[in-house]
Amino acid sequence: MKFAVLGSNTSTSLSPKLHSIVYDILELNHSYSFIESSDIDQDMLLKYNGLNITNPFKKSIINYVDNVDPLAEKIGSVNCIKYTNSKIYGFNTDYYGFNQFIKSNNIELFNKNILVVGAGGASLSICSYLNDINKKFKILNRTYTNTQHFINKLNISNNYIYDGKLKHYDIIINCLPNNVNFLKMLERNEIDYHRSTSIIDINYLTNINYINDNQNYYNGIDMLIHQAIKSIEIWIEKDISQIVDYQIIKDRLKKDA
C-alpha cells in the first residue's frame, strides 16, 4: 500500500521515517513518502491509499472528501484521508494525538490558565479537545477575522479570545507554523512566558532556547507519533496500540534522525 504526507513544506517532515519504523515493526510492505505542494490536486489524491494532511490544507482538504468522520466534521479539520472503494474518507487524528500526548506526559490541566497560540487546523483540534473536557482557555492569533471564524466553528463565545487582561498563563500551547516566531508574538502581546509552568510546542523541529529550570517544555514529537499510530490503524483497519511500543518508536526515531 502507498501512503504519504501532503503539505506546503513537507521535505523536512519526520513522518516518512516514523511510518517506516512502524511498518518495519508490523512487518508491513508499505511505502510512505512526502508530497510538497502549494495546492491540492484531486487526481493526485487518488494515487494513494491514504494521506496525512498538514499545513496549510487541513481545512481546505474537506472540499475534496466524499465522507467526513463525525469528529473531523465537528472540528472542521481533516489531517488523515483514506481512499477506498472509489471514495475519499476524511478523519482527524490530531485530536486523538493531543489527548494521548497529555496522558503520556502526565500534564495536569485542572484549574490551569491555558493560552493557545494560533488558529489553524491543529489548533482547532486542540481547542476542541480542551472544550470537550471543559477546560477554559484563551486563543491568541495574528488576525482577528480568522479568530472569529475559529470560535464560530467551535461554537464558543468571544470570551475565549485573548483580550490582554491576563499576562501570565500556566500553560502555553504553540500551534503556529514553524516559520512564525512564537516568542515575538508573545512579547508583542506582553505575555510573560517566563512565568509559565509548561510550554507545549506542537512543532517538533523547534529549537529550545527560551526555557528556564522551573519550566516544563514539550515539543510535538509525542503528538506526532500518537496521531501517526491512529492514522495507520485507520488505513489498515486494525488496532495496533497493543502491538507497537510507543517508547521504542520514539527511541528509534531519535536514533535515526
Rank of each mutant, 00 (worst) to 15 (best):
M1P: 05
M1V: 10
S8D: 04
N9E: 13
T10R: 02
S11L: 11
S13C: 08
L14T: 00
S15C: 02
S15V: 03
K17I: 13
L18Q: 02
I21C: 04
L28M: 09
H30S: 09
S38V: 13
D39G: 08
I40M: 03
Q42N: 13
M44C: 12
L45T: 01
K47W: 00
L51P: 08
T54H: 05
N55Q: 10
N55A: 14
F57C: 14
D66Q: 02
N67E: 10
I75T: 08
K82R: 13
Y83V: 15
T84H: 10
I88Y: 04
Y89M: 11
D94P: 01
Y96C: 08
N99G: 04
Q100E: 14
F101T: 10
S104T: 09
N106Y: 07
N106F: 15
I107H: 00
F110C: 14
L115V: 08
G118I: 08
A119R: 05
G120E: 04
A122H: 06
A122I: 08
L124M: 12
S128F: 10
S128I: 08
K135R: 11
F137W: 07
K138D: 05
R142Y: 02
T143P: 01
N152C: 06
N155L: 08
N155S: 15
S157Q: 05
N158Q: 09
N159Q: 14
D163T: 02
K167L: 09
H168S: 12
V180R: 07
V180W: 03
L183G: 02
E187C: 03
R188Q: 14
I191G: 07
D192P: 07
Y193G: 03
S196W: 06
S198D: 09
I199G: 13
I200P: 00
N203A: 06
Y204T: 08
L205K: 15
N219F: 07
G220Y: 01
M223K: 05
I232W: 02
I232S: 01
W235Q: 02
W235R: 07
E237V: 07
D239Y: 07
D239P: 04
D239V: 05
I240R: 03
I240D: 01
I240K: 07
V244P: 05
I248M: 00
K250N: 13
D251G: 01
L253S: 01
L253A: 01
K255A: 11
D256P: 00
